[in-house]
Simulated scan of single mutants.
Amino acid sequence: MPRHPLRRPAARRATAPPRVLPTTWLPDLTTARFAYTGLQLDLLFYLLSILEEATAARSVELWLSGFSAAAGKKHNYSYVAAAAAELVAQPLTIRGKQDQYQPLRLFDRIRSVPGQGLLQIKLVRTGIPYLLELRGLIPATSLRAFLQLPSKHTKRIYALCCRYKAKGRTPTFTVTDFKQMLGLIDEQGHEKQQGFTSFRKHVLEAAIEQINATTDLRIACQMEKHGRTVFYLTFMIKPQALPVLLPIAGTDA
């Protein structure tokens, strides 16, 4: 009777080992899932610096001159206004009870006044508490450093580390959760940064280098493997003196 050729067993897909992640992963905007551009993140965090609790429910005025001065960079108004307008419909989900994510709207409408270099921003009432909470995470002295970080992923990681600076470390995230948080995996499960090696080099290592060189934090990423696969990430955080930053030449145009 002929013998069947030997077949290699199908490779098993690596699965994360059983583990209960810390409950200190708080439901706030630093761990929300969204994919803002770098400019949109800058607008969001500059908005926080001018946001007042007493007037947050009314229209907030964001002047291009103040935004450009804070960033140390001359911004093009049309480019900024277009990026701001997209924030109204930009999807954002935040972690709720039992680890379920729920949609959250921050911006109700944004009106541009071109002749004055002004944006009039109306916030959604249910989003205001999250914005006010986030406002206290990044001190005003660090805003310039945040605005000059070159990568949108670096900005997100810096904000996260500011959130947990007092603890000296962030919560532990699975790699998948962390990629979803940064918008690198969309709602359909499509991954934008294929392979962990590329993710580590172009996102994690780049962010660590940029944050350590230009901000008030010194961070490192602790990775935990199961076999050969990295499943968990934790950022270790230490304060450092804020470097002297020089203005950035050029505009958005």
Rank of each mutant, 00 (worst) to 15 (best):
S151Y: 12
L143C: 06
P171G: 14
P150Y: 13
F146G: 00
L131H: 02
S151H: 09
L147W: 07
L134V: 01
I157Y: 01
T174S: 08
T174F: 05
V124P: 10
T126E: 15
Q120F: 00
L160F: 06
G168Y: 11
K165Q: 14
F146S: 01
Y164S: 14
L119P: 09
H153A: 15
R163M: 10
L131K: 04
I128Q: 07
P139M: 10
T174K: 12
K122G: 14
K155M: 09
G168L: 10
I128F: 11
L132N: 12
L119I: 06
Q116G: 04
S142P: 08
C162R: 02
T170F: 05
F146M: 01
P171L: 08
S142M: 11
A140K: 14
I138Y: 13
R163Q: 14
I128E: 10
L134I: 04
L134N: 08
Q148L: 08
S142E: 15
I128H: 13
L119K: 03
L149D: 02
A166D: 14
L132F: 03
K165V: 09
L137S: 08
L123V: 11
Q116T: 04
L123M: 05
Q120E: 12
L134M: 11
L123S: 07
T141L: 13
L137V: 03
R135V: 02
A166W: 06
K155S: 03
L119E: 12
T141P: 09
I157P: 07
F146N: 08
L149R: 13
Q116W: 11
C161R: 00
T172F: 04
L160P: 06
R135P: 10
G117E: 05
P150D: 06
R169T: 14
K122Y: 11
P139W: 15
L160C: 13
K152Y: 04
T170K: 13
G136Y: 08
A145S: 10
T174R: 14
L123A: 06
R169N: 15
I121R: 03
K152E: 14
T126K: 05
I128W: 08
A159L: 06
Q116I: 03
R169E: 15
G127Y: 01
R135H: 12
R125V: 10
L147F: 13
L149I: 02
P150Q: 05
L160Q: 07
Q116K: 11
R144C: 01
T174N: 07
A159W: 02
R156V: 01
P139Y: 12
Q116R: 10
Q148E: 09
L160E: 06
E133A: 04
C161I: 04
P150E: 02
L143W: 14
L147A: 00
K155H: 03
L160Y: 00
C161Q: 02
L160V: 04
S142K: 14
P139A: 09
E133Y: 12
R163T: 15
F173R: 03
G127E: 10
V124H: 07
L123H: 07
H153E: 15
Y158P: 01
